[in-house]
Design a protein around this nucleic acid. Structure first.
Length: 427
RNA sequence: GCGGCUGUGGUGUAGGGGUUAACACGUCUGGUUGUGGCCCAGAAGAUCGUGGGUUCAAAUCCCACCAGUCGCCCCA
């Protein structure tokens, strides 16, 4: 029998990688809070219709088969969340946040699930840092979520990021544009690959995102949505750009940036990083003024983004950026079994209660000093506290500094004071 | 769902038909009685991804499957 393995597309986050996660989550939380956002967590499972609605017919079939959906005995269909936004909007409506002072600024962190074929930077379970503003149409709200993303990456020391920006219009101007795009593509049908011909029928905007060779020129000459926005969308977009310019935040207007789902309106954006494979977007988001209504709530504008933590980690590692050191105990208690062990255990917990991190050497029987010293060395311990028979008898502890300093003997009653002095030095 | 590449101790690799599968790192033990790093000595740890086939003989060649990985599709 072979040992059971983890399911496809699921990752174990080992301590070495986990350092990055903690750092990212900590940094993201700090940035969001600095902007006045509050954390709200929603369940990992929601009723399936929450995700099915609002996505639109084009993505319906394709997207839904990539969800982890469970049909329950009582006939309810539930789904492992494939995104954050729908759940947060649901919670906003269900818990009456509609009656809080508007807008409501929220963030969340956690796993999401998509049943796709894994590749670099794309896993079936991945985690997102997610930020949303509900109940605000001001382009300054769009700016705010975008800047949270940028701030996060900057605080992490990320280099070489590009802000990709586009507007996807609204229910008024988007259909008009799609018709124009379709018309143009139909005129050049012979130049389209089979896959793009399909896309043209199913979800024409996606043709803009085509990876087929030779599409650059054809698409450059195609109608671009920013030239076909209605007055409202046009001014929203101009306004947002003006604010970005005022902050001297560089960005690229990318007319090929599209989102496949119907609920997006006006602003769409991504942040791209180099060196993490074909899935270069480290962050994707936009405005979704139609979503709340689509899931049965009051019409409420919203804007937000999700940023994949695994991809941020990949990018940081690619750039050789190290997370800050995580705190480790700086003392280890060595002993020789029997009464010395009991004394060591007691002293260990005394230190821990006093807020001093301590590692206790484990040993079922008498264990050699050498072995315990080697252990201390492996974990970058600064002081080995030795409790042997003679120390226990005298009520002292021998302190062996591992940095080459002189070995000293201290009264056990003075140990905490002594350590507090030593450990604050050089730190 | 489709395609490319890859599967040898914990990790990284060598071995590309012939008896006990090699090396490095890591792990553990020891180098006198209670003292680390470096060094030295030793040990543990691999059904060579799984199953079939070819052959006197397979880690090695062939097929299938599985897993990983990269890309396509899709991307909320």
């Amino acid at each position: 029998m072979t040992a059971i393995q983890r399911p496809k597309g699921m990752q174990d986050v080992l301590p070495d990688d986990r350092r990055y996660w903690d750092w990212i989550i900590e940094t993201g939380t700090a940035v969001a809070q600095q902007y006045g956002f509050q954390r709200l967590d929603v369940p990992i499972i929601e009723f399936t219709p929450l995700f099915a609605r609002g996505m639109g017919e084009a993505s319906d079939v394709f997207v839904q088969k990539e969800m982890y959906t469970i049909e329950e005995d009582d006939g309810e269909s539930i789904t492992l969340r494939p995104e954050f936004t729908a759940g947060l909007v649901r919670a906003y409506i269900e818990n009456g946040l509609t009656n809080w002072p508007q807008p409501v600024k929220l963030f969340s962190i956690g796993p999401i699930f998509r049943r796709e074929r894994p590749q670099a930077g794309r896993y079936r379970q991945h985690s997102q840092f997610d930020v949303e503003i509900m109940g605000e149409t001001d382009p300054a709200a769009d700016l705010e979520v975008m800047m949270i993303a940028m701030n996060l990456y900057r605080n992490l020391g990320y280099k070489g990021l590009t802000f990709q920006l586009n507007s996807t219009g609204c229910p008024v101007c988007k259909p008009v544009y799609i018709a124009k795009l379709k018309e143009y593509l139909a005129d050049h049908l012979d130049k389209l690959a089979a896959i793009d011909q399909e896309r043209m029928i199913r979800n024409p905007l996606r043709v803009l995102d085509s990876k087929e060779p030779g599409m650059d020129e054809l698409l450059a000459n195609a109608p671009h949505i920013v030239d076909h926005l209605c007055a409202d969308c046009e001014s929203h977009f101009a306004n947002l750009r003006g604010l970005l310019d005022a902050l001297e935040q560089s960005y690229t207007i990318n007319f090929r940036l599209v989102r496949g789902i119907d609920y997006y309106t006006k602003t769409v954006f991504e942040v791209w990083a180099e060196g993490i494979g074909a899935q270069a977007a480290v962050c994707g988001g936009g405005r979704y003024d139609g979503l709340a209504e689509a899931i049965g709530g009051p019409s409420t504008p919203g804007v937000g983004f999700g940023s994949g933590i695994e991809r941020i980690v990949l990018g940081l590692q690619e750039q050789g950026i190290e997370p800050p050191d995580t705190p480790q105990p700086q003392v280890l208690l060595a002993h020789f079994g029997g009464a010395t062990k009991t004394a060591a255990v007691k002293l260990t917990y005394l230190l821990r209660d006093a807020g001093i991190g301590a590692r206790l050497a484990f040993a079922r029987e008498r264990r050699s000093m050498k072995s315990q010293m080697r252990e201390a060395n492996k974990y970058a311990i600064r002081f080995v506290l030795i409790l042997g028979e003679s120390e226990v008898e005298k009520g002292v502890v021998t302190i062996r500094p591992l940095d080459g300093g002189e070995q000293v003997e201290i009264l056990q009653t003075e140990l905490i004071t002594w350590l507090n002095e030593q450990l604050t030095m050089n730190n």
